[in-house]
C-alpha cells in the first residue's frame, strides 16, 4: 500500500488549512470559502478568492511538475451527467450540512469539535453506501 504520498499530501493540506485559519480568523473549509464568495461582503471576500486562487495554482504546479505521476482517471461508467448531479448534491449538501471534507473532516476534527466527527462519519458512510449501491445495482451499466 502506498501511504507515504497520501500522508505527505495530507500534511500539506493540514498546514495550508492551519495558516489560512490563523491569517483569516475563520474556519477555512473549502465549501464555506467557496460558497461565501457568492455573496460579496466587504473585507470578507478577498481572502477567499486568494485562498482558492492559491489552491488552483498549487494544484496546477503539482500536476505540471509531476511529469505524469499525478494520476487522473474517471471510472468508465461515470458520464458527465453523473458529475453534474454529483456537483449539485455536493454543493447543496455541503452548505446544508455546514461543511465538507476540509471544514468538518480536517479543521473541525483537528480542532476537537465533536459535532464535526459525527458529520464526517455521516458523509463517509453515505459515500461508502453510494459506491456500494452503484456497483451492486450496476447503475452505470443500466444508464448506458
Amino acid at each position: 500500500m502506498e501511504f507515504l504520498e497520501p500522508l505527505f499530501g495530507g500534511a500539506l493540506i493540514g498546514i495550508g488549512s492551519l495558516i489560512a485559519m490563523a491569517a483569516s480568523g475563520k474556519i477555512p473549509g473549502i465549501s464555506g470559502v467557496a460558497s461565501k464568495i457568492l455573496k460579496w461582503h466587504r473585507g470578507d471576500t478577498l481572502w477567499r478568492i486568494l485562498y482558492l486562487a492559491g489552491l488552483v495554482v498549487g494544484a496546477g504546479l503539482a500536476i505540471s511538475f509531476s511529469m505524469g505521476w499525478a494520476k487522473y482517471s474517471v471510472p468508465a461508467d461515470k458520464g458527465l451527467a453523473v458529475f453534474a448531479v454529483a456537483g449539485l448534491l455536493v454543493g447543496f449538501g455541503s452548505r446544508m450540512g455546514g461543511g465538507c471534507t476540509s471544514g468538518h473532516g480536517v479543521c473541525g476534527i483537528g480542532a476537537g469539535a465533536k459535532d464535526a466527527i459525527i458529520y464526517t462519519l455521516v458523509f463517509m458512510a453515505a459515500g461508502i453506501l453510494t459506491v456500494f449501491v452503484w456497483n451492486q445495482l450496476m447503475v452505470g451499466g443500466a444508464l448506458q
Binding site: 482558492l52 455541503s94 465538507c100 461508502i128
Partner: peptide, 24 residues
C-alpha cells in the same frame, strides 16, 4: 446538518469529487 452531510456524501460517492479536489 446530518441530512446535509448525508447528501454531501452521496454526491461525493457518485463523482469522487469533494469541493477542494474539484476546484483543484
Amino acid at each position: 446538518l446530518v441530512i446535509g452531510s448525508a447528501i454531501f456524501g452521496i454526491g461525493w460517492g457518485l463523482g469522487g469529487f469533494c469541493p477542494g479536489p474539484a476546484i483543484a
